[in-house]
Amino acid sequence: MSDQEAKPSTEDLGDKKEGEYIKLKVIGQDSSEIHFKVKMTTHLKKLKESYCQRQGVPMNSLRFLFEGQRIADNHTPKELGMEEEDVIEVYQEQTGGHSTV
């Protein structure tokens, strides 16, 4: 019986991991920090939209990076291997420009 009891508790931990929340720091170019608590399985588009709304800027005017890689709207913290207190960097999107060649 103890084996049966242990097995469901392991499964519960697996389920808990799926719905687990982590805190992420979003740091802007001006070094301002906003902290977000997100589920591991939530699409990061929600975090990006919330950040842009707080900053009063359109979402397409900023780019969000985690460990140097651009974050897509459909990425989740779990897919990117994010952990508690990880940092997302935000930069002004640069458009235009010309070749110097």
Rank of each mutant, 00 (worst) to 15 (best):
C52Y: 02
P77E: 04
L44W: 02
N74M: 07
L80H: 02
V87M: 14
V101G: 07
R54H: 02
E5S: 12
K25H: 15
L47H: 03
G28T: 00
V101C: 07
R54N: 01
H35A: 07
N60M: 03
K7C: 06
Q29D: 00
G97H: 00
I27L: 15
A6W: 13
S31K: 02
D15G: 12
E18D: 14
G14M: 08
D15C: 10
D12I: 13
P8V: 04
D30I: 01
E83W: 07
K39N: 08
Q29F: 02
K7A: 08
R70T: 12
M40S: 11
S99N: 10
I34D: 01
D30C: 00
E67T: 00
S2V: 14
G28R: 11
Q92D: 07
S2G: 12
V90C: 12
F66H: 13
V87D: 07
V90D: 03
V101R: 09
D15H: 14
A72V: 11
R63L: 07
M1S: 08
D15A: 12
E93S: 10
D86V: 04
T100S: 11
Y51G: 01
E84S: 13
K37L: 07
E93G: 08
E5W: 10
S32E: 07
I88S: 04
G96P: 09
L24F: 04
E20H: 09
Q55S: 12
K45S: 10
V57Y: 14
P8L: 13
V90G: 04
V87G: 07
T41C: 03
E89D: 09
E5G: 15
L62E: 05
S61R: 07
K17A: 09
N60D: 12
F36G: 03
F66I: 04
I71H: 00
S2R: 13
F66L: 03
F36S: 03
V87R: 13
E11P: 06
K25F: 03
N60H: 10
Q53S: 15
A72C: 11
Q55F: 07
G81V: 05
D12F: 10
T76R: 03
P58L: 09
G28C: 01
P58G: 09
T100Y: 08
N74K: 14
E67N: 13
S31A: 15
M40H: 15
E93M: 10
Q94G: 02
E85K: 15
Y91E: 06
